[in-house]
Simulated assay, not measured.
Amino acid sequence: MARRKKLYEGKAKILYEGPEPGTLVQYFKDDATAFNAQKKDVIEGKGVLNNRLSEFFMTGLSRIGVPNHFIKRLNMREQLIRQVEIIPLEVIVRNFAAGSMAKRLGLEEGATLPRPIVEFSYKDDALGDPLVPEEYIIAFGWASQQDLDDIVALALRVNDFMSGVMHGVGIKLVDFKIEIGRVWEGDYMRLIVADEISPDSCRLWDIETGQKLDKDVFRQDLGSLNDAYTEVAKRLGVLPSNVTHATKPTLIN
């Protein structure tokens, strides 16, 4: 499709003006970043995989009634999405201790949490996306108490869906983060899942071996990020099972 006006460029995606009012075109880049963009690289094919995997998850959420911004995939790297007003929070759901939580609380990496825990961080790269309590969120007007209740409910529904899908293909959903946006339908406002859901935004471990199949492979120099993402895509049926490397993936429509 013809290139349109660029509205925003982030670390992993670019947003362009959509073909109709209230829509955007989301383009997935091959850029990989970690540690608040202190570590960078370009991984050929990563954007193609994340585009298709995010489509897979968003479509699945739609089927079970979880509202989200996805409309349709346009091509290998782009998808048409609803334009939303992003709430300036990252919503983090944790099922097992890992990453910053394990370090903060001195927990063993991989320890099962007593229940899924929802955390919020303030979206600001310059500040390192600091964790914030609900009191801050309400006081600064980023979201109301009702919004937060609805966000937690949405996040836990996403967690139930994602955990089940991943467990079915032998993958443990350790944690993930999503973003939530506001959309208006007349005078009525509702909250929907936005941004993306992909191995960039999840921690995914093989249930039997503990092998990491997410961006920690890049963070910790554990091997090929493309191979890890390709393995996730193969297990979910997004890639043919006989594909061994996805530098230039052949995707299933």
Rank of each mutant, 00 (worst) to 15 (best):
D195K: 13
R182A: 01
L204H: 03
R203Y: 12
E196P: 02
I192T: 04
D195E: 13
V183S: 03
V174N: 03
K172Q: 15
D200P: 03
R182K: 13
V183K: 12
S198W: 04
D206Q: 13
W205Q: 08
L191H: 13
R203W: 14
G210D: 04
I207M: 09
S201C: 05
E196A: 08
G210W: 03
D187I: 01
V193Y: 08
A194R: 03
V193M: 06
L191F: 11
W205M: 07
A194F: 06
G186D: 02
P199I: 14
T209D: 07
R203M: 12
R203F: 14
E185Q: 11
D206F: 06
D195A: 07
W205H: 11
W205S: 13
V183A: 05
V174G: 07
D187E: 12
I192E: 15
D175W: 12
S198K: 03
Y188R: 15
D200W: 06
G181F: 08
C202M: 15
S201T: 15
R182H: 03
S198V: 04
E179Q: 14
D187T: 08
I207R: 10
V183D: 00
V174H: 08
E196Q: 11
D206R: 14
D187L: 05
R182M: 02
E185K: 12
K177C: 07
K177Y: 08
F176S: 06
G210P: 02
I180K: 08
V193A: 07
T209F: 14
G210K: 05
M189R: 15
W184V: 02
V174W: 06
E208D: 15
C202W: 07
D200L: 06
V193D: 04
L173P: 13
I178F: 06
W205Y: 08
V193R: 10
V193Q: 07
E179I: 12
L204G: 01
M189G: 01
M189S: 08
L173Y: 12
K172P: 00
G181D: 04
Y188S: 11
G181T: 08
K172I: 08
E208K: 15
S198E: 04
M189P: 07
S198P: 02
G210H: 03
G210Y: 08
D195W: 14
E196S: 12
E179K: 10
I197L: 15
V193K: 10
E179A: 09
Y188L: 11
I197H: 00
R190H: 13
D175H: 11
K177S: 09
E185W: 00
V183P: 00
I192G: 02
R182T: 01
E208N: 15
S201W: 11
P199S: 15
C202D: 13
M189W: 01
R190E: 10
D195Q: 10
I207D: 04
I197Q: 00
D187H: 04
T209A: 09
I192Y: 05
I207W: 02
F176P: 05
D175E: 09
K172S: 13
G186Q: 03
R203D: 13
S198R: 04
I178H: 03
D195P: 13
K177T: 07
D195S: 11
G210F: 02
G186P: 00
I197F: 12
K172D: 12
L173H: 09
T209M: 06
P199Y: 12
D206T: 07
I197A: 01
T209L: 06
I207S: 08
I197K: 01
G210M: 07
R182S: 00
D175T: 10
A194N: 04
E179W: 11
V174K: 02
D187Q: 11
G181P: 01
G181L: 06
W184Y: 14
